[in-house]
Amino acid sequence: MTNETNSTTPKKVPAIYPAKTKLQVTVIFFVVLGIYLFSMSWTQQQMAGGFSGALSNMFNVIEKFFPPNTAVISAIWGPMVETIQMAIIATTVAAILTVPLALLAAENVTTFKPLYIVTRTFLNLLRTIPDLVLAVIFVGLFGIGLFPGILALIIFSLGILAKLISETIESVDMNPLEAMRASGGNVFQVIWYALIPQVLPQFTSLVLYVFEINIRASVVLGLVGAGGIGLILNQQLGFYNYPNAMMIIILIFVVVIAIEYISTKIREALL
């Protein structure tokens, strides 16, 4: 209908999208826009002080935090390492547990529909629980320390990893799998020889990515008592010891950046 005006022949050119799709997209667009506008005006009302208030507050805060206390660095190094270990252990365990779950949640491997649907639903449920809530629950169950933090991270990263990896599995080339099946390979041999080589680079990359997320998450989990550097940071803030807290924040910043840099480099090399 749009092209008819400037074409010389009266031939009808079909639109790229059917009229129904166009209508749907338009409606969705306006609904989303409406939600944006509404929430913008709503938050404006809630923020009584507005941005100018926040700005003056910020100077007050910054003043209290500086200069950071470099003397505590040796004392906080231990908990920092604990945090990293927490992330490493949790990521490793999650990576192992992911394998069977991801296979069961991949439609092309698990052809038995009910099993696939149950696993999918389980993973979806897992992902709806925020990591912080998991940490609070486990700290309540096991007391303050690293263990509840690790548990929370395992479950949290399992939800993400299994979902992403099952999607990677669903996108593999099925032809080699058929060839292995046709040559007499059993299920395990088919997966090992035809599937794993296809998903291994993606798998490693995703595990590293989740490791990055876990480093940051484990800091936050520490705030609710799940061990590591976050716990110390929370204590120092509780004592109003802002220069110490600032030193901790700087250390976290440096470590997170360093780990993300290394991990990104490895992932680039893999893909």
């Binding site: 080699p176 060839a179 020889y193």
Partner: peptide, 10 residues
């Protein structure tokens, strides 16, 4: 097979 069906990365 028509498409050889090899594991391309192996």
């Amino acid at each position: 097979f028509q498409n050889y069906n090899l594991v391309k990365r192996s």
